[in-house]
Design a protein around this nucleic acid. Structure first.
Length: 812
RNA sequence: GCCGAGGUGGUGAAAUUGGUAAACACGAUGGAUUCAAAAUCCAUUGCUCGCAAGAGCUUGUGGGUUCAACUCCCACCCCCGGCACCA
């Protein structure tokens, strides 16, 4: 018998499968469709990472199984190839990003093919192909047409190292997500996408979706919806009113100051002459600070009195107006009311600046105590932030916080100084980048007509080939230097005009790529509407947690917009979203070139074969969890495949399988069906190992029929070895043309079981019995046993608990 | 601080959702094979006591519910991920 040599059999089958096109998805097939999607990779110079393969191997097994179950499966792949790394690489080496990208794609493709991932390569897409980004630009024009793409002069997050503006989502703890450099503020005219218009729907529609719970909550928190009240505080000496946003209307009688952000439009007017120098100084100081410094939580809150007062509309109390740089200008109008007694920060602020503390909410317990004993409240030494009962709040005293919030809102509405207000943490998406390697934004600036969209017939606006793609650092894109490209006639008035030179962020192309897979060669529309309707939504999308508030949120937003303009067939793109944990290096750190701890899949394939790598990726641990790579673990999987090889060939002559083996294979069949849906890939592999070990215990019991069934079950996970053994067993057709077996629920059940005998809940004995033994029989059988007698020892049995097929427990 | 997910052998982990804790794998120890090594095969492997039969203990800690708790309830501790002066 020949040894298992994956290096010999794998390339052979890869060629054969490529020719037979068994992975092709059929448009409009009568079979039910399944759209299975993995996040398409960025083709980096480092090549495929074992981390990529965790998601790919698992979802490939899903796709293969679904095909065998009779589904018309779409499992596509493409390249998310625009972005900074290619550009940085180009700057370093002088190789044009286009060439570098092409080279990287070729390498990725070779690597993916060496793993036999069952992608439909006929639908391969590339975001940097003008035929593709024509439609990315087209979608942008639609956003513009509907008023959802607009230009704004705003302070943006500027990464001085990447020399680019970043979206809020790309800033992590004040640093650039990509390079870790401290982000600065820069005022620039930027293109924005109005994602905030979709904030509510992005939250509400999550309810209907099968996303991992943590993904949903992360998105909800990111959007950060908060419902409250906006209340007008009239200033004492002018007609101006300050609009304050609060979620705690119930504390309004406890307001002892109003604090404005330094950027608030009324600040300058409110400063009185004697305070001018102090306040202006303060504002100067805070302007110098970065956003991150200003919002650092540990920092002590500072502020300064403007000298002016406003009036609390509920009781006309005179309230001092302060300026504090911890107030976020862009949220809730940049003004807050200070309620020291019921907010931790406010309490500390009041103490520091000797502002009064007015208690207006107390706990229910204290409320009833005070009512009965009429004790005076002691001075507060910390804020009481919970809900409670209102005191000293005029007509609202005695109400609970919850009720008071409703009543006071009603009252303010009636009086005309308050209204319901909803605020979000989510900001509009900063959509321009001052870089070369991205989709040009298809707009033309005309002095007379303003921003004019490029006519649809002129799309795509191709990225011009330039020699110098270095970012300028002036905040202008390198494209700005190509005057023959920039200077153009206005499409509207034919006067002189200039092209927009900013490009789109790398998140643009990936925001709709899964739609293009349904019709990748269409040049009339982004995809044929019938094809979109047939294939979408994606049935199962797996990807990394790191994209939850980036790509996943962005693409849901784009899809909703495309749905609203009648292109996407429904309001949500992905029915189900799961997520895999990252693969850490053997030393427990992140795999990184600089640590020198990166595992290259090519090396693993060379030594153990693709099947081993694929199975190891699934076996290494729970799918959703971060996991450390272990080369020893890879060896263990290789041993398992050797056992599969041995068992299959040694048993291929046996006529019949024993009932024990038949039961085991049906149990395995069931386990795969159930665990695959639950993304428990690790226990599926363990199930296979258990089965093979059982078979090897007594090879005579394992018949050819069972071996064949095992190979079919194994084929989605380890395609090469399964196909090779299948053919060795005498089959001419591919194993992937076989139907997925159905297990018999009757056969899954064990006939004999180990009945556990407990006395007072402790296991004292076990006995092998028929699985369907009755309580009476069990009672008789077990009480006879020596061990049981010993433990009972004449004590009266108070109670007997019998769990059918499991245990009997005597309470004495 | 808030939100989320966790804490089980030497290691990665499993546990039919309240019913034999530690499946499967790695590693380790001993043995077989070999001139030798690798590979392979067999045995042992949660901890403690014991020559053994056996007994006791064990799922972060402390309580509780139950005939029975890794699983349910309460309190606390510790790691990981996300958000974070958001009013």
């Amino acid at each position: 018998m020949k040894k298992y040599e994956p290096q010999k059999i794998e390339p052979k089958w890869q060629r054969a499968w490529e020719k037979s096109e068994i992975y092709r998805a059929q448009d409009f097939s009568k079979k039910p469709k399944k759209y299975i999607l993995i996040e398409f990779p960025y083709p980096s110079g480092e090549g495929l990472h074992v981390g990529h393969l965790r998601s790919y191997s698992a979802l490939d097994a899903v796709a293969r199984k679904k095909r065998m179950e009779g589904f018309n499966v779409l499992f596509p792949i493409g390249w998310d190839a625009f972005g900074l790394p290619a550009e940085n690489y180009a700057i370093k080496t002088g190789i044009h990003p286009k060439e570098a990208t092409q080279k990287n794609i070729a390498n990725f493709k070779r690597q993916l093919k060496s793993l036999s991932l069952s992608f439909d390569w006929n639908r391969e897409i590339n975001t940097t192909n003008p035929k593709y980004y024509k439609w990315t630009q087209w979608i942008f024009l639609k956003f513009f047409e509907k008023g959802l793409a607009y230009q704004a002069e705003i302070p943006i997050n500027w990464c001085p190292s990447c020399k680019a503006g970043l979206a809020n989502e790309e800033v992590v703890s004040g640093k650039c997500e990509r390079c870790g450099t401290q982000v600065e503020k820069k005022i620039k005219k930027q293109w924005m996408l109005k994602i905030t218009k979709y904030a509510d729907r992005l939250i509400d529609d999550l309810e209907k979706l099968d996303y991992l719970e943590k993904i949903k909550t992360q998105q909800i928190n990111w959007i950060g919806k908060s419902c409250g009240t906006e209340i007008d505080f009239k200033t004492e000496n002018s007609k101006d009113t300050i609009k304050v946003f609060t979620t705690r209307t119930d504390t309004i009688f406890g307001v002892t100051a109003v604090i404005l952000a330094p950027e608030h439009s009324l600040v300058e007017k409110l400063i009185t002459d004697d305070n001018k120098e102090k306040v202006m100084n303060y504002i100067e100081q805070s302007k110098k600070k970065s956003d991150f410094e200003r919002t650092e939580i540990k920092k002590e809150k500072t502020g300064v009195f403007t000298g002016s007062y406003c009036l609390n509309p509920v009781n006309n109390e005179k309230i001092p107006i302060w300026v504090g740089d911890y107030i976020v200008a862009t949220y809730g109008g940049g003004a807050v009311m200070l309620v020291p007694a019921h907010d931790k920060r406010d309490f500390n602020f009041a103490k520091k600046y000797k502002l009064s503390v007015k208690e207006v909410i107390i706990s229910r317990e204290r409320f009833s105590l005070i009512k009965s004993t009429r004790t005076v409240l002691p001075q507060l030494n910390e804020s009481f932030i919970e809900d409670g009962v209102l005191i000293d709040s005029g007509q609202f005293s005695g109400l609970t916080s919850e009720k008071a919030r409703r009543e006071i809102l009603k009252y303010t509405e009636k009086q005309g100084f308050g209204r319901k207000a909803i605020h979000y943490k989510l900001r509009d998406w900063i959509f321009s980048r001052q870089h070369y390697w991205g989709e040009p934004i298809p707009l033309i600036h005309c002095e007379k007509c303003g921003a004019v969209p490029v006519p649809e017939k002129d799309l795509p606006i191709e990225l011009p080939y330039v020699e110098k793609y270095q970012p300028t650092g002036t905040g202008e894109s390198p494209l700005a230097k190509i005057s023959e490209w920039v200077n153009i006639k206005c499409p509207k008035c034919k006067g002189p005009a200039k092209r927009e030179t900013d490009t789109m962020p790398n998140w643009a192309g990936s925001s709709w790529y899964f739609m293009r897979y349904t019709d990748p060669y269409n040049d009339k529309s982004l995809a044929d509407s019938k094809k979109l309707k047939y294939w979408l939504p994606v049935d199962w999308y797996n990807g990394g947690m790191e994209h939850t508030t980036l790509h996943l949120l962005y693409s849901r937003f784009w899809y909703k917009f495309l749905f609203d303009i009648g292109i996407a067939p429904q309001a949500e793109p992905y029915t189900r979203r799961t997520s895999h944990g990252i693969v850490l290096a053997e030393d427990g750190r992140k795999m990184s070139k600089s640590f020198g701890n990166v595992v290259n899949p090519d090396d693993i394939i060379k030594e153990y074969g693709a099947d081993t790598l694929r199975i190891y990726e699934m076996f290494m641990g729970p799918f959703g969890q971060a996991i450390t790579w272990s080369t020893k673990g890879v060896k263990g999987v290789y041993r398992f495949l050797e056992k599969v090889w041995k068992l299959s060939l040694e048993c291929s002559e046996n006529e019949k399988s024993s009932p024990k083996i038949i039961r085991a294979i049906h149990q395995l069949n069931k386990k795969i069906d159930e665990d695959l849906e639950a993304t428990k890939f690790n226990t599926i592999i363990a199930g296979f190992m258990k089965f093979v070990n059982l078979g090897l215990e007594d090879k005579k019991e394992v018949g050819k029929d069972t071996i064949e069934k095992m190979l079919i079950l194994l084929s989605p996970f380890a395609p090469h070895i399964s196909e090779e053994l299948w053919q060795k067993l005498g089959h001419k057709k591919s194993i992937f043309k076989e139907k997925w077996p159905k297990y018999d629920p009757k056969l899954v059940k064990e006939e004999k079981i180990n009945l556990v005998i407990q006395i007072n809940g402790k296991v004292r004995d076990k006995i092998e019995v028929e699985a369907n033994i009755s309580e009476k029989e069990a009672n008789q059988l077990t009480l006879k046993r020596e061990k049981v007698k010993k433990w009972i020892e004449g004590k009266p049995i108070k109670k007997t608990i019998f769990v059918k097929g499991r245990l009997i427990n005597f309470v004495v």
